[in-house]
């Protein structure tokens, strides 16, 4: 199978590249922490893609994410909103709500039956409700993100954290620790606080089931559980959740006009 389109998602925290064949099957992908030199990093990853997945002659490169203007060789630049919508819609094929949980931004997209973005909302100003919130608070607890997720999962009860502001939540956390509250309960409380903020954003847009979470933060089971509880319905995890921006960009490359579903031939390779 040959590469028919390549998507590059130059996000705030990670840079992702995905190569699809003409049927929309994921052939090759790579994810790296974002370097400050976006252009060089993207070029290097595209070269890796060409050597590992085959040259893919004439395969269009579509760039998305904050660094989309810096990706050399891109024939199109599209926002990550459209790309996540395309990426999720290719799997769902109908109306749905996408929670794109990124490192610095959280976005909620409402997709119509034809895959069009009917409305979207993004977090304002602060890091509340984004990956950054979890990163900062986990670091304060001295936990890696995986351990933070595990701690929240293991919690028997949930500490009440009312602030969704990162700075305030941090100081609330300090006083909880000072009172001897178990780390697990605090971790669960923090996940809940973040979920509250995302849910508020989602309600602004209006929820159309099913709900799917994409972006790197969506990989955390505790986050999805907290979101499910807050939104009172299941929050699913699409395949390649963290890569969906890049996959969506490549889908735009395959078919720039239609947001319609791509027939996925065969099982995509696990990433």
């Amino acid at each position: 199978m040959t590469v028919a389109a390549i998507g590059v998602d130059a996000g705030s925290t990670t840079l992702k590249v995905a190569a699809l064949d003409a049927a929309g099957t994921l052939l090759w992908s790579r994810l790296e922490p974002a370097s400050p030199r976006t252009a060089e990093q993207a070029t290097a990853l595209l070269a890796a893609c060409a050597s590992e997945a085959g040259p893919g002659k004439g395969a269009p490169i579509v760039a998305t994410g904050y660094g989309r203007d810096l990706v050399l060789g891109a024939v199109r630049r599209v926002t990550e909103i459209t790309c996540h919508a395309r990426g999720v819609f290719a799997q769902v094929g109908g109306a749905c709500t996408v929670l794109d949980l990124g490192g610095q931004d959280t976005k909620v997209l409402a997709l119509g039956a034809s895959g069009r973005v009917l409305d979207f909302a993004m977090n304002d100003r602060c890091a509340a409700g984004t990956g950054r919130f979890l990163e900062v608070t986990a670091a304060r607890l001295g936990l890696s993100l995986e351990a933070f997720d595990a701690a929240a999962t293991a919690a028997h009860h949930e500490a009440v954290i009312s602030s969704t502001c990162t700075v305030f939540a941090e100081s609330e956390m300090v006083s909880l620790l000072a009172r001897g509250t178990p780390v697990e309960a605090i971790a669960a409380g923090l996940h809940r606080a973040m979920a509250r903020r995302v849910a508020a954003l989602a309600r602004q847009v209006g929820i159309r089931p099913p709900i799917l979470a994409s972006g790197g933060v969506a990989l955390s089971g505790s986050v999805r559980r907290a979101l499910s509880r807050e939104l009172d319905q299941d929050v699913g995890l699409p395949r390649h959740a963290q890569l969906l921006g890049a996959v969506g960009a490549a889908l735009v490359g395959l078919d720039p006009s239609s947001p319609g579903p791509i027939r996925v031939a065969g099982r995509p390779r696990p990433v």
Binding site: S162, S163, T164, C165, V167, F168, S171, E172, V174, S175
Partner: peptide, 11 residues
């Protein structure tokens, strides 16, 4: 709105 208040900071 209790969300705009930090007990630790205030105390």
């Amino acid at each position: 709105d209790p969300r705009a208040f930090s007990e630790a900071q205030a105390s």
